[in-house]
Simulated assay, not measured.
Amino acid sequence: MVRTAQLLRQEMDKNQDPTHDFRKLEIWTRGLVVSLDELEQSLNAARHFSKSVNSGFVDDMSVQEQGEYARYVYFYKNGFIRVFSILDKLGTVLNDLYDLHTSKVKAHFSYFTVLRQFKFLKSHTELAKGLEEIKDRYKTPLNALRKRRNTEIHYMNSEMQDDLWQRHQGLSDKIELEDIEQHLVDLAQGVEMVCRSLAAAYKYTNKLWEKSGVKA
Rank of each mutant, 00 (worst) to 15 (best):
Y69K: 04
Q64T: 12
E176Q: 11
A5P: 06
Q66H: 09
S42T: 13
M1Y: 05
F80I: 06
G130T: 11
T140C: 05
R47C: 10
F112D: 03
Y111H: 04
Y74W: 09
S50H: 04
Y72N: 03
E178K: 07
R148G: 00
I175F: 03
Q189R: 15
G130D: 11
S85L: 07
L32R: 00
Y76N: 02
V191Q: 02
L25E: 06
H101A: 12
E159S: 03
E178T: 07
M193P: 01
S212K: 15
K89F: 12
K135E: 13
F109K: 01
A144L: 07
E152Q: 08
N206S: 07
D99E: 15
R137E: 13
L7M: 13
I86M: 05
E126K: 10
Y76E: 02
N143M: 09
Q117M: 12
F80P: 00
K203E: 09
D179I: 04
R30I: 13
T140N: 09
K147T: 13
S52Y: 09
R116I: 10
M156S: 10
K211N: 11
L142C: 04
E181F: 13
V83M: 02
Q66F: 06
W209I: 06
K14H: 07
Q41F: 08
E65L: 08
N15C: 08
E178F: 04
R82A: 11
K147I: 08
R149V: 01
Q6K: 12
H20S: 15
N95V: 04
R30C: 13
L115H: 02
K135Q: 15
I134Y: 03
Q66T: 09
Y204D: 07
G91R: 00
H154F: 07
Y69R: 06
V93D: 00
W28F: 12
V185K: 15
R149A: 00
Y202F: 14
S55L: 06
M160P: 02
K119H: 12
K147P: 04
V185S: 15
F57V: 07
M61T: 07
L39D: 02
F75G: 03
A46S: 14
T102L: 05
